[in-house]
Design a protein around this nucleic acid. Sequence first.
DNA 1: TTATTTTCAGATAAAATAGTCTTAAATATG
DNA 2: CATATTTAAGACTATTTTATCTGAAAATAA
Lengths: 144, 144
Amino acid sequence: MKLLSKTCMYGIRAVLYLTSLEQEKSYVHIRQISEHLHLSFHFLTKILQNLAAHNIIDSYRGPNGGVSLARPARKIKVIELINAIDGKDSFRGCILALPGCGEGTPCPLHAYWGETRDRIKSAFENTTLAKLEKQITEGGLRLI
Amino acid sequence: MKLLSKTCMYGIRAVLYLTSLEQEKSYVHIRQISEHLHLSFHFLTKILQNLAAHNIIDSYRGPNGGVSLARPARKIKVIELINAIDGKDSFRGCILALPGCGEGTPCPLHAYWGETRDRIKSAFENTTLAKLEKQITEGGLRLI
DNA sequence: TTATTTTCAGATAAAATAGTCTTAAATATG
DNA sequence: CATATTTAAGACTATTTTATCTGAAAATAA
């Protein structure tokens, strides 16, 4: 069961790290993030490029360059990252991939699954980076 | 978001087709199943071999050979297929793959996710092939 | 027995996902 | 301007998942 792709998880963790630094609009090196999270620098770079293209983070080249949140953490929803990385259609489709199944004639499992899926989705829609970060610090949780 | 692998969906559909035939312990050719569901014969064969190894279906070689349910459909739970094909660990693990996250120190999202995940899992545990098949026929749903 | 039908088993191929590497472009500083 | 630093972009490789192919083994029937 893969709710999120690895790429997506990496992206979320990276951005949560940015959130945790809470620096006032100063750029953080991608290298620093990748080393802190033990992720491949080049791979993370690609992921963050994508997030930058989706206006979730800002990036800046050269010395003193790096990445930073494009908005305050409380204004960035987790669903935005998921949509950017895994695609908007990530939360659609029948659980059994039954071609006959869908809006018109939902199979019973689909109906149940649809409900569950919507719960998951709305959890991501209602969760901001700030919220998540707060819960993580309070829970004594690491990102590594 | 992939709750089940394609392999697993195929396996479930194939076995639901067997269920729908409701033949009294006579073997159905894998070829017939694959043609009916528009699935690759060889790929389906491998999937069904796995299910046979897990005693979910019986198989028999030679003319008049094929596969059949190993037990009455009401005694086969969907979770059995999922465990056989996607593995028993399919329903474990943190949603963000945060290494610090787990039983000891669950992250908040993990806690929420754990609840949701358990709901999904128990739905599969409480759903038998017979139940699912009944719902599918009543819903006028096809497996193709 | 011999031919036929079917699953079994394992090698191989294709596609999707994940990860690496190299070079270019932008920025800062001396 | 020259050089160092950092992200951008895209080619390339590796791994996993999905799918195909070939031949053997088992069962049946003539």
